[in-house]
Nucleic acid binder design. Sequence first.
DNA 1: TTTTTTTGTTTCATATTTAGAACTTTGTTT
DNA 2: AAACAAAGTTCTAAATATGAAACAAAAAAA
Lengths: 254, 254
Amino acid sequence: MKQKNSISRAVMILEILGKRKMGFSELYRILLIPKATLHRILKILIDTGMVRYIKEERKYHLGYKILSLASEILNNLPLREIANSYMKQLCEKTKETVELAIPDGKAILYIDKRESSESIRLFAQIGSRYETIHASAPGKIILAFSEDKEILEKIPLKKITDYTITDISELRREIEKIRKRGWAFDNQEARVGVRRIAAPIFDFKGNLAGIIGIAGPSFRIKKEKIKKFGELVKNIAESISKELGYTKKEGVKW
Amino acid sequence: MKQKNSISRAVMILEILGKRKMGFSELYRILLIPKATLHRILKILIDTGMVRYIKEERKYHLGYKILSLASEILNNLPLREIANSYMKQLCEKTKETVELAIPDGKAILYIDKRESSESIRLFAQIGSRYETIHASAPGKIILAFSEDKEILEKIPLKKITDYTITDISELRREIEKIRKRGWAFDNQEARVGVRRIAAPIFDFKGNLAGIIGIAGPSFRIKKEKIKKFGELVKNIAESISKELGYTKKEGVKW
DNA sequence: TTTTTTTGTTTCATATTTAGAACTTTGTTT
DNA sequence: AAACAAAGTTCTAAATATGAAACAAAAAAA
């Protein structure tokens, strides 16, 4: 813990309370902020609605103010609005869960989803953030199309499942393939039993603005479907890019 | 606005930026916080990820940290709701009191219950917290499946009833057995006359998210029922885990 | 280009917050 | 009911943040 200013401390408290609700003493033991100070900060956070105190449990929770702020963010993301009808379309065509994400530095942030109506369907949580971008199709899209060309060198290649690619050379070849064909695939690399297909969305400057993809159980996303789905996702992503003002630069040479 | 402390001001900034992204001057005109101070607060908020500065637009916007905090809240809410129908099911099948609990550090917290319709039934109190996790089936589930692998070393093995296991080696063997078969049992170890059976619920990260179990008088929960109930509770717990997004990892948990 | 507006920085006396300890209250466990 | 643990309060000198104004830099406008 470096920062001593109260705002940094307040955010640290929120991060910890995000993991689970917590009593004062536990919070105190983790943060090592003096009792009187911690009390005062918690009081302000409760007053502002950022933290909720559940008296019966004597525990502090994240407050619902955070949920409403988050919904403001989601409401103000134009990508979400534009992608909406395309996501519906993609979901109907594939019968799988459709996910919309944006790059957030070296991480991926899921900003929307449309769940498959199938009884066996994938759980996706809006707002979740994953730093394991080497291990999922949407993540590999970031690696392949990020403005930061050295991004691959900056992330740890953690083994998440038995299928996760942790060899950097193999990953480089994979990324090269993704760049050429315009869509990515992963076979249970982030989660056992889950296969994903994803494609990049570009803004008017040609920068990666988002990732759209589908995710489903490996028994349903079979080999013969992958290429078909890949092209479908890619085409939908291109349509969204077009609405964002992107005009394809490469390959249109005259 | 009355508050002058920086946390309140920071939250005010977040609320205003929630409406729309904004340049410095506009924010300054609205808040009337001195320029230097406003700059300082914004800098801290950017450092913590709560605010994002879009350089090309020269505008401040809510940061994605808020989205991930919000997803934590959402992640922490659904257990009770999801478990509800399964608790009903379990109660109907066993005719015993069904308990839903969550791990709370080195303690167990009961967050829901469904009482047996039998006239002689166990009284369970929502919100009660027990630090005696070595002495009950749900508590042993925590010992067996907690993220904290050294948890057993950190708790006092108090003798609560004549049946309570207070020998750490014996408890270790018991925990190993629980890990293998996927459910726990206790014979009057926390309360004389009461037997419990419990199984772990895992979230999408594979962490212990809750414990579901049954509790009943020892004269009714007889030897021949224990194994059958154990498998039943385990199966129900697995169903709930699945709804929380957990996909069983090969050979990891049991 | 030069001017104007907006944004960001520096200074420093003053105001506020911090932190450690002792203490009170409240709830829990035995 | 007694013992204990957790939560919250109060007190201070010392540490830190604040804010007014002057300054500096960067965009936008003329």
